[in-house]
Design a protein around this nucleic acid. Sequence first.
RNA 1: GCCCGGAUGGCGGAAUUGGUAGACGCGCUGGAUUCAAAAUCCAGUUCCAGCAAUGGAGUGUGGGUUCGAUUCCCACUCCGGGUACCA
Length: 883
Amino acid sequence: MEYKFAEIEPRWQKYWEENKTFKTEDDFSKPKYYILDMFPYPSGAGLHVGHPEGYTATDIISRYKRMKGFNVLHPMGYDAFGLPAEQYAMQTGTHPAVTTNKNCDNFRRQIKAIGLSYDWDREINTTDPHYFKWTQWIFKQLYSTWFDEEQQKGRPISELPMPDEIQAKGKKAVNEYIAGKRLAYYDNAQVWWCSSCKTVCANEEVLTDGSHEKCGNQVIRKNLKQWLLRIPHYAERLLQGLDDLDWPAGVKDMQKNWIGKSTGAEVDFQINGLNEKLRVYTTRPDTLFGATYMVIAPEHQLAEKIAAQEKKSDVEEYIKTAALKSDLDRTDLAKEKTGVFTGRYAINPVNNKKIPIWVADYVLMGYGTGAIMAVPAHDTRDFEFAKEFDIPITCILDPKDAEGRDEILAGDKCWTEDGEYINSSNEETGLNINGLNKEAGIKKTIEWLEKNDLGKATVNFKMRDWLFSRQRYWGEPFPVIHWEDGEVSLLDDEELPLLLPELEKYTPGEAGESPLSNATEWLHVTDKNGRKGRRETNTMPQWAGSCWYYLRFIDPKNDEKIFNPQKENYWMPVDLYIGGAEHAVLHLLYSRFWHKVLFDLGIVSTDEPFQKLYNQGMILAFAYETSAGAKVSQDLVKERDGHYFHKETGEELKQIVAKMSKSLKNVVNPDDVIANYGADSLRLYEMFMGPLDERKPWAENGVKGVHNFLNRVFRFFADTTNIGDGDEAKEVAKLLHQTIQKVESDIENLKFNTAISALMVFNNLAIKKGKVTKQTAETFNKILSPFAPHLAEELWSIYGNKQTLAYEPWPQVNENLLKEDSFEYPVSFNGKMRFKTELPLDMPKDEIEKTILSDERAQKWLEGKEVRKFIFVPKKIINVAVG
RNA sequence: GCCCGGAUGGCGGAAUUGGUAGACGCGCUGGAUUCAAAAUCCAGUUCCAGCAAUGGAGUGUGGGUUCGAUUCCCACUCCGGGUACCA
């Protein structure tokens, strides 16, 4: 019987759709399992074979969990706002919604052709007003929340305590005070501006070479009014929350790095000859005795002010150059240290010594206080700077036994590790940490600073406020009106969603404003008192819609509420979230932030959204290059006997692994794979390629391999003359149950490649035997079904079943069949396996020793040698150490 | 520079807590079937030596611990990802 996948697969896809086989009911009595894919951006290019990797993995688990009796929530949607549709609109005038819908239709068609068991009634599209109504609503919640440091919790703005002195200053002061506390605020921000995209980019969208990650164009600095979110207020919570999550360690590390917590102290330095203090942040207050100069950032408000008369022009010049430089190329800055002396001195509080204050751009305004005390002997950056400008270097930490100690003590080499303090006492100030180590030195110095009111222990985070607006059309409009009197107000809930206006032209407005500034009718509003206002013309970034979509899947059609709280309480958290590692920081951190705010406000029931996270690895392709290293397009390569040659030059080429790309013509489209081998083969190969979390190259021959496996399965199991009655052969029954066990534990551990291998092993045995019982056939079919569901449904119906097998109970392992009473031991001599022998499991060790040592095959290895040790590990190995 | 991950046959990859290295698949070789091919089926396939039995070597490199190391420890090489003057 022939395996006609092209006929079988569409038929079952139609059956599932018509019968709503995978519709999820909110049946609270069943145990739940919420399994989520990172939803795609529906690009015009359609799906590539990287998409179905994660989707297939989650689909296998979904189908397995259903058979295990779980109520499974497994939804799909589209993260459909974004720049490409808008750029296309600029070129052609086609409304982005039209392009987007077309792309979504294509994605849906492609995804359905893979036979994934999504509940399509829950499909979400971030550009749908029914959806972004609630994105706007969440923005309102952020705007109306402040963070209570003491409780470490977000609270409604109505509960914000108002200091009397602010109250006394009047309404404007009160509003400003409140604005300073809101999680969302509107302010002038130095932003990166991409003149090619005509939009601002968040810091994280700018690559280290100063180019925009979306278009590669160099970005420049610009000052613009922007919406920002105070995510650093949640830094500590976001850091702590990682501990209890079942996430890859690498992702946790990246988030930790991004949050960048550091502990240290702020210290005040009196400025000599001015009634000003210079506050610095340092993680090493213990090295105060080694501070030989100070540095402030060029943007620091004191920079110009403290410059001595004769240095004023130098300093101004430097500040100007630094500002210009950062516009042009940031990376150049890292190469060489530059700076200028202000002519002014500060007093080191630990010994009252005068030390020079410099301005240098290696100190950043955005971190700590924008000023540092420099300890060249024990900080590599300060060391470089001091060397460059001939500033004294005082060693105060004896490295003891370390290599190069003499150089370090002489200040010719930098030492950043632990040691024992020297030259670190002063009678006048009463601080003495000589002889202590780093940990004790830090502790004692901070105590001294706090006692003398010169500084205090401080925590700093690298994470910055989140720039939350873009100058684009195709994004969620902010539900905000700026009034002519300076007041800002939000739309009422009843006025949501605020729709995007229809536009003739999608080009940006004057001075880089969003295209929305052209929508005059939409733009201008008047309130009932005749006061005039202007709508916010910025739109939200693409992160907004993807920040909370997992919550909407719970109750996607609810127009009254963001979701029904009972349903949220039942389904959350997401039990397993699978997606690419490229979202390790931004999407996952932003989502966690919003979720924690919603949790604090009592809107969601869990502190964290995603209990378990897993990253699928990237799917790559083979590519070819010449001996000179030039890449050769796929269509110019010819294979002969496992070697590769250039079609035109005949040169032998080297096979390498590279990202799929249009230029190499090695992009694989799932539609083609399905047409040639079927969806089940595609699914199987995606999983059989290797471990889910590793990067691996696509190989067409590999698809043929798994396709051949399905062919063999079908030809054998669909042929009812191979299916008999009575008792199953012992060997077959045993392997069947071993296979159930293996497949089950492999699915639980996301090791799909070895699960498929086990299924192949069983199939090989069944074919070799030539006959199995119907029960064996049905059982095997069930454990195969999560992987190759179309084929499995087909076999299931051939065996006379009328209903889908999607909800058939998962087979139970019969432990009795797995019991062994003997084991074939590998026998080693000095660790080298020499022969095997079957021994009963209940044989005592001394008897085993006797049996082995008298075995004829052992004599060769024992001859003339003494048995020094006899190692016997039950059910593992026998090893004889001779010598 | 710093942090994280990886390296196993011709290829993708397997190997509970240290216990038979190379499961499974691809490719290749030989055979059956066929007029022939495709498809299918059977056998073989880490490398070296040997007709074979068999022996030797072998999991990026160099050391170490152990009866026994792909697995643990130390030092290093290469590849991939993240990050970058964060005081």
